[in-house]
Design a protein around this nucleic acid. Structure first.
Length: 154
DNA sequence: GCCAACGTTGGC
DNA sequence: GCCAACGTTGGC
């Protein structure tokens, strides 16, 4: 059974265009330094679909990707020069994981956060909950369906 | 730019 | 184990 997820990224840092422009449209989703988000990534399976969300600037769900490699150690945590360096993680005892995701599509029209807040049936989405700061979260099959419909409405 | 909400750290 | 202080996220 395919599961559905949502990942957040600041477009100024890494946008869906950056993903699409990556080699094979794929990238490692590194830099996650939150246990809850990490644990969700560990549950991701190859082929799971991933909604791509732009945070901060024009917050919106902007496209779709899929998991092409399941969780493995995030090597950026080992590099003292990396922005996401974490001395508590080492190649011998990795603390943080990442997955690889691949671009599938950029929606013909992005779905802005204020719009999503108005959609009946999405009220329970983690994304829409007050104070939600999770950067990786599960999405129910129903919510996923609804969002895909909205994204492709004429 | 402001600030609310949240997670983490560290003193005790 | 508690909790205050701090840093970060992210909407507005």
């Amino acid at each position: 059974m395919t599961a559905h997820w949502l990942v957040k990224s600041e477009p100024g840092c890494f946008s869906i265009d950056d993903l699409a422009a990556s080699e094979h449209g794929a990238t490692c989703w590194s830099g996650v330094r939150n246990y809850q988000a990490r644990n969700f990534m560990r549950q991701m399976q190859q082929g799971d679909t991933v909604l791509f969300y732009h945070s901060v600037t024009n917050p919106a769900v902007v496209g779709l990707a899929r998991v092409v490699r399941e969780a493995y150690p995030d090597h950026t945590a080992f590099d003292p020069a990396d922005q996401h360096y974490d001395p508590k993680s080492s190649p011998e005892k990795p603390l943080w994981d990442m997955v690889d995701i691949q671009w599938l599509e950029t929606f013909p029209r992005p779905l802005p956060l204020p719009l999503l807040r108005q959609v009946r049936g999405l009220e329970e989405m983690e994304l829409l909950k007050k104070g939600s700061r999770l950067s990786v979260m599960p999405v129910s099959a129903a919510a996923f369906q609804r969002i895909m419909e909205l994204a492709h409405q004429a």
